[in-house]
Design a protein around this nucleic acid. Sequence first.
RNA 1: GGUACCGUGGCCGAGGGGCUAGGCAGAGGUCUGCAAAACCUUUUACAGCAGUUCGAAUCUGCUCGGUACCUCCA
Length: 505
Amino acid sequence: MSNLRVYNSYVRDKEDFVSLVPGHVGMYVCGPTVSGESHLGHARPYITFDVIFRYLMHLGYKVRYVRNITDAGHFEEEGREAVDKISTKAQIEKMEPMELVQKYTNLFHWAMDQFNCLPPSIEPTATGHIVEQISMIEELIKAGYAYEVNGSVYFDVKKYAKGHDYGKLSGRVIDDLLETTRELEGQEEKKDRADFALWKAAPPEHIMRWKSPWGEGFPGWHIECSAMSTKYLGKQFDIHGGGMDLLFPHHESEIAQSTICNHVPPARYWIHNNMITINGKKMGKSYNNVIKLTEMFSGDHPMLEKAYSPMTIRFFILQTHYRSTLDFSNEALQAAEKGLKRLMEAYEWLKQSEAVGQRSEVGGQKQEDEGLKKKVTTLLNELDDFINDDFNTAKVMANIFELIPVINSLKDKTIAFEALGADTFNLLKDKLKTFIEDILGLKQESAANDDKLKGVMQVLIELRKEARAKKDWATSDKIRNQLAEIGIQLKDEKNGNISWNLTSL
RNA sequence: GGUACCGUGGCCGAGGGGCUAGGCAGAGGUCUGCAAAACCUUUUACAGCAGUUCGAAUCUGCUCGGUACCUCCA
């Protein structure tokens, strides 16, 4: 079997993955800013890294997955006073900042749960680590790489760039950076335009504020991740992840801060997921084309033709490689929905069927079909190679889909069980469980698990079977059609059974 | 303006010098009381123009088109 290779943004190439401490992996992923509701864009990184988290654990690593919650307002609005986004909104909504932050954090957690994303090992908040951030800033000042002006502290990028490669991660050239950075409020305080804030003095109207050696203020955007990753994962850890839009300046700045404080670059492997686009444009606040996750799930948005379930979105995202952009459209989502349905229905049958007792009742071949066995085992073994190749879930999915006709043919008995053989059957079952459930994190999400509903359906199915036996087509069609109207689809199978599932209306 | 990246069949998307990606949709068939589902078969492809090569969707150059980052962002 192949070894795991990951694309490291820092070297712009795929590398063999070797953890710093054998058997353990430390992974830090930049979490959401909870000043607003999570949107479709948030789904991508957290589902991507959920699969990475799951796969590393599958490989046997003990993984500490740290994902922060940015709940401290420390953003400046262009052309205005340094007013905190969170506090601005809080005034409008007449809420306490922390109340607002809590609300959106809860919503975020709820959405992650809907997506079947495993919770991270540690989920630190920026507001809970002000002390750590302040002491890191003090270290930077002591080291001579940060300076204070009017109660704010800035990182000296020019000085850092003399001895270090500032811009390596994001492919920036420092000199260009100095010239092309746009005019921003507060620039005059900085020694250099490329410098970034570590601590900002809070203007009087700023609600979120903390005491510091430099007066009351709030931390700069980049310092929280450096402080918290160091605290929970050490000076150097294995994986640092996030969206590609964070490459610059966020991750570049993190590298600079951490490198000065810890004398070692923070992460070995930088992994960045690409963006979700909508009509070819990045989804983002600045573009006014944001679809919130609650709107995705309810279908309550002008751009949406219908509601899309969390698993449909998860599947849709995993059908694409994480480093490609993924364009959203109703058509694409609906294609994903149908594909997922076919996949899960075949898989559900496979899951409940046993190798023992799977004797084909009909005639036909009773011998093992070497060609079929080889095809199945090859497709299954390739799953490991594909996921190892920089988490290529798209190829994993493709192979799984190639196995579906085999599963359905076993179900319909157009392929005799003996043709596949018990060993291959069990391999198929085990591997698909591992990949579909454990690694890709897909699950059956319909209410079809309700025992009472199951009982009711059994009654209706019996009635329909009896009607059909009497060739009472009026009754049998009535049962089928009326159920269809309320979103329950009946399917007459080849073996005379009737199965059912819930459909989205 | 600077720096990257991308342009694949009706749609979405893998791949990345010679080998069917896959999904959805379309067509034909099998099955079925009918339908659906399922299964089988199947059509449409690599933006354009040059070049390298025995051979290019894949490499190189140019052209056109698009996107991202440079400012908060997943």
